[in-house]
């Protein structure tokens, strides 16, 4: 019995280590945190940003795997939704950039001045695609 428990704990710890390391690696590759620090000019706060990410991951993995509820007001969902959307939006933008899609597109098609308008196409596509998904697509 003890051996079983220890084995399960070891497996859990190992899986957690791998996933956690992978998560941090992804964040590093996309460079979202440096980007946010650059915009807000808060490079000195890097430690507290790290702690914020660790707490966020621990909190969500604990409560996400359990069936708890805090039975609070539903309006709390609006800031949560906005924040999670912003994070995913930055992730998507970073992904587009890592893949070098836009520079190649600009060069191929030759619209150097209209980069902003094309970026807006992607942006509105994301927002409207997402709204369409939640409002209509999930009912199909």
């Amino acid at each position: 019995m003890t051996i079983k428990i220890i084995t399960v704990m070891l497996i859990g710890l190992g899986a957690g280590l791998a996933v956690g390391a992978g998560f941090v690696a992804i964040l590093t590759v996309f460079g979202i945190i440096p980007r946010l620090m650059q915009i807000t000019k808060t490079n000195s706060q890097i430690r507290s940003y790290e702690i914020s990410i660790i707490i966020g991951v621990l909190f969500s993995s604990w409560y996400g795997l359990r069936d708890y509820t805090i039975s609070s007001s539903q309006w709390l969902l609006i800031p949560i939704g906005l924040a999670s959307g912003t994070f995913i939006g930055m992730l998507a933008a970073a992904l587009t950039e890592v893949l070098n899609v836009l520079p190649i597109l600009m060069k191929r098609v030759g619209f150097k001045e209209q980069v902003l308008i094309l970026l807006m196409a992607i942006l509105f596509g994301k927002v409207i695609g997402s709204l369409f998904h939640w409002i209509f697509f999930v009912h199909l």
Binding site: R35, L82, S84, A93, V138, H139
Partner: peptide
């Protein structure tokens, strides 16, 4: 269908891209 969460989420998507670029 938790739209109260999902509509701000969709707006946030656009906001995040603006922030990044």
């Amino acid at each position: 269908y938790p739209l109260l969460l999902q509509v701000p989420y969709s707006i946030g998507l656009g906001l995040g891209m603006v922030l990044f670029f």
